[in-house]
Design a protein around this nucleic acid. Structure first.
Lengths: 268, 268
DNA sequence: AAGTGGTCTAGACCACTAG
DNA sequence: TAGTGGTCTAGACCACTTT
């Protein structure tokens, strides 16, 4: 006989219970939860069941696990804001440089973009998508991968697709770059405008997760789009993945100095 | 003696191995992976170890697990595009209505927004953030929660904060709404403009995960912002969470009919 | 050294789906 | 009914952090 209204599994019940206690203030932000053996005793379940509940809460970003130390309630995250003014943002000047909120200990740290690979586009799904967006065959496209970091930490990964003919030599080898978009535009003798930009969210795949030092499936903010010449000729397709909880893209619709949700940063 | 350069755990090695085989075309999109017992035998590990590897790939959205059936390689996802024209988008007319891509079986399905709760703002972190954004004390704010769904599935959750004095009666009770922003503006006799909008990505917390029917930590696209009167008086703070892989916000920077990455939709 | 979380094994029972 | 994945137990050993 099929089971018609089963209760949810114990580890989920336990996760919800712990979340309720956190919400109720029993465990304030920064405080330590009971250890796994303690919870096993308290709730009368196996350690793996406790671990599944705790893992659930960690994926939900409600707690932080510090190996060898304990499990702690997470305080709300502070994020970098990257300002985009949709009235003035017409020219694509590159977007590497941002500044951190004053509240952050790491203020004034260097934002650095480093090319990790430059290859002819192949048959990957993303390569074909790029070709579609640029209206050119895959065979004429090159792909440049880069990581950008703030201090010692990797914050995001960018992939650029462009006609191989436009790829300047200084971008064809791994190493730091000052401003990839500007370098490209200058070397090709063109100016670049935004055609479109789009925002979505994905979970980190295993490759991106490795590079960023986050678990697979961590939420990443994806900003992708096409830049074109003033004639409307599409030239560059960019796909940037940023650790979702670390950054926020802000579009300002009102005049000169509109209030920002956090400390502003330079255009993106 | 501390362990100075340990190899990565077996389940991660196994996850990478499977991913490599998928990438190499050994398991094309849509095909079934070996069952858990088969992998246990092939790799000589316990079933839990296999399960951890598989879970890693599932979180990375590389595979799809169908209970009682098997584990399958995921094809690339099709997403809804929601168009935003940064040149014309100045008036906030509400954003409920979108249309699905023609490729989708569900085309023409109803987009419906349903209020699930309307409460005075309390002491939650998000309430305080809303109060800061609106420049008003928490005590005068109300919070309205809604879910919007396409057909039978929940696609996103919206939370609105506004001065309690502006909350019209028809929005103060659970039930479907036609256009929340417009209802609010009409009832208050004001027009609303965008002040700012921001995009970020987060993992679903346990509450949102329950409502959306996704696992905790699933990537959500967050679109938040303030709408104000033409004078610049902030009136409404909105925070919408959308299943990240199901939607994409598109900003078009060029003239009348710029190419969209996918089938366009009405303004958001 | 003691306590924490991380990995792994062996085995069990269950719920779901398909033929 | 057979095979799949989902949950759970009991126990072990390990790596990491702190004292």
């Amino acid at each position: 006989m099929p089971n018609h209204r089963r209760t949810s599994p114990r580890y989920l019940q336990l996760a919800r219970l712990i979340q309720e206690r956190i919400d109720a203030g029993e465990f304030p932000a920064g405080s330590r939860l009971p250890s796994e053996p303690e919870m096993c005793a308290e709730f009368g379940v196996n350690r793996l069941t406790v671990r599944e509940a705790v893992a659930e809460l960690e994926r939900a970003a409600a707690i932080e696990i510090r190996r060898g130390v304990g499990t702690f309630v997470r305080p709300p995250v502070a994020r970098v804001s990257i300002a985009v003014d949709p009235r003035s943002q017409r020219f694509d000047m590159g977007s590497t440089h941002t500044s951190l909120p004053d509240s952050t200990a790491g203020q004034g740290m260097d934002v650095q973009e480093t090319i990790t690979a430059a290859l002819p586009a192949g048959t990957a799904t993303t390569d074909e998508e790029a070709a579609r967006h640029l209206g050119r065959p895959v065979a004429v496209l090159s792909r440049v991968e880069s990581v950008f970091s703030i201090g010692p930490e990797s914050w995001g990964i960018s992939t650029y697709w462009m006609p191989s003919a436009l790829l300047p030599r200084e971008l064809a080898a791994p190493g730091p770059v000052e401003n990839l978009v500007r370098t490209l535009a200058d070397s090709a003798g063109i100016t670049l405008e935004y055609d479109w930009r789009a925002f979505s969210a994905i979970g980190a795949d295993i490759g991106d997760a490795d590079i960023l030092g986050v678990p697979a499936g961590s939420p990443l903010l994806v900003r992708e789009g096409v830049s074109c010449t003033p004639d409307g000729e599409p030239v560059l397709y960019v796909r940037r993945r940023i650790q979702g909880e670390r950054a926020r893209f802000v579009l300002n619709f009102r005049a000169p100095g509109p209030p920002l949700p956090q400390t502003p940063a330079s255009p993106a």
